[in-house]
């Protein structure tokens, strides 16, 4: 099924909680309200003809100028061989998105990764801890305004170099 058909099916079930189909310059995507994301995902997984049994990617991106953090769900169906991209926006000051761990167990670690690097809280997640960085790390490094701490357990992180990685 193409993205228009998938969007029509979603609209029929969830009405305006599901946004317009955004054709995008590269891939069509659908914006979904955070409150219904778990229901939308369950529907997409279980509905005959859709059968998105696989969450192939879950990424997050920080948009400071828009005051939001966006989670991008890329779903794939091995049975129907089609894919769709869902977007969920969260408020950057206190980003909360319901977890979809119950729909696809693969989401467990992907959500933990986003929590670790971008600080999005996935409500209802069974084990929301830092995954890549140590438990006592300060800050969310993939946010655009991340400031590094000067040291970690006595190991200095000040780089003695004139070069700088910052964009001018």
């Amino acid at each position: 099924m193409d993205s228009t058909g998938i969007h029509a099916a979603l609209r029929g079930r969830f009405d305006t909680a599901v946004g317009e189909l955004a054709p995008g310059p590269f891939e069509a995507s659908i914006e979904v309200d955070a409150s219904v994301i778990e229901a939308v995902c369950t529907f997409l997984r279980d509905e005959e003809g859709l059968e998105f049994a696989n969450l192939s990617n879950l990424s997050g991106a920080d948009y400071p100028e828009l005051e939001r953090i966006q989670a991008v769900y890329s779903l794939f169906s091995y049975k129907q061989r089609h894919s769709i991209t869902l977007r969920v926006n969260a408020d950057r000051a206190a980003p909360v998105i319901p977890t979809v761990e119950a729909v696809w167990p693969a989401a467990n670690w992907l959500e933990r990764e986003i929590f670790d690097l971008l600080g999005v809280e996935f409500s209802g997640h069974c084990d929301l801890r830092r995954i890549l960085l140590p438990e006592d790390w300060v800050g969310y490094p993939l946010r655009k305004d991340y400031e590094e701490q000067p040291d970690y357990h006595g190991i200095s992180t000040v780089r003695e170099s004139l070069l700088t990685m910052k964009r001018d």
Binding site: L133, P141, Y146, E148, I155, S156, T157, R159, S161, L163
Partner: peptide
């Protein structure tokens, strides 16, 4: 060496 999570040099 400029990565936030890397110790730049084991001699530290």
């Amino acid at each position: 060496q400029y990565a936030y999570s890397v110790c730049d040099g084991v001699d530290k």
